Amino acid sequence: MLDFPNAKINLGLYITEKRPDGFHNLQSCFYPVRWCDALEILPSEQERFDMTGLPVPGNPETNLCLKAYKLLQKDYNLPPVHMHLHKVIPMGAGLGGGSADAAFTLRLLNQMFELDLSAESLENYARQLGSDCAFFVQNKPVIATERGDVFTPVELSLSGYTCVIVYPELHITTAEAYGSIVPKQPTCTMQMLLKQDVKVWREVLKNDFEEALFPKYPELPQIKQELYEAGAAYASMTGSGSAIYGLFEGEGPDESVFSGQYTVWKGLL
């Protein structure tokens, strides 16, 4: 079975408080985009996992796809499989690529072995793998709260907008990003902010990590400014990583505007 785990962007991101368990509570809108990895799972005589595409740091045995398989194998005595992941979504970019890979592994195994697990059950497994993994089970725009794993549906469509994501080949770890954050409560709810016109978001919809990371990495605010100069209605860092995206009415600029050392993805929402 073959599927294509997709990335997400954050429309606003507010870190509201540090939790007793060491994690942080947040408020954000998660919105899926079509920048995708490729994941294939096949029956096999023995358990196998391999990767192509972008190099993934760390031991392959700790990959979230394998962890997702082990979770279901333990509870449902799954037979061996061969999993192949082709990595396209950059890591440390705030795009949720690894989380998507894990959630799509759960989804594919559920179909492949006819486990008949509900979306709620799959989300509960996904929550054991990472804070935003559960989002990719249903893969629809939501308001995310607590650790980013409690969801409220949101009526929001960016149909007709083009998203341009610029990744400056800069890997920012979650620990580094959160280490500079001072939690605070936003002055307005995400629901109220998102009801405003996209062109107003520039003034009211913020990502708290920008304040912490932009002074340290000056190329990030420069990319954001270039997106606005190219005609973006709204531009922001996504997640806690280094990717900066712009939302454009219509087709948006040519990717060559951001040529050079940057990786650029462009697609309709």
Rank of each mutant, 00 (worst) to 15 (best):
S240H: 09
Q261W: 01
L194T: 10
K8P: 13
S131N: 12
A243F: 04
A134T: 07
C36R: 15
S159M: 10
G267I: 01
L106A: 09
I143D: 03
E210P: 04
S157T: 15
G12Y: 08
P168T: 07
M1A: 12
D21R: 01
D50H: 13
E251G: 01
I165Q: 03
E45S: 10
Y262M: 05
V33A: 05
T145V: 15
K74E: 15
Y69R: 07
E114C: 01
C65R: 11
G96Y: 01
R127Q: 12
L117I: 11
V88E: 15
P141K: 09
R147Y: 06
F135G: 06
D208R: 04
K67Y: 00
L158A: 05
W35M: 14
N139I: 01
Y161V: 10
E61R: 14
H24N: 10
E226D: 12
L247H: 00
E114L: 00
M91K: 00
T173F: 05
L2K: 14
D101G: 09
V200F: 01
Y178I: 02
L170K: 07
E229K: 03
I223W: 04
L129T: 08
P32K: 06
G92V: 01
S259P: 00
P60H: 08
N77V: 04
G96R: 03
Q46M: 13
K67N: 07
M91F: 08
L66H: 04
L158I: 06
T52M: 04
L11V: 11
A93M: 02
V150Y: 14
F248E: 05
A134Q: 07
Q128H: 12
T16H: 08
I15G: 06
D116I: 06
K140C: 11
K199L: 11
D50R: 14
A119W: 02
W265C: 01
Q191C: 00
T173P: 05
N139M: 06
M83F: 02
Y161Q: 07
G130N: 10
P90Q: 08
A119I: 10
F49W: 08
G92Q: 07
G97T: 03
G239M: 02
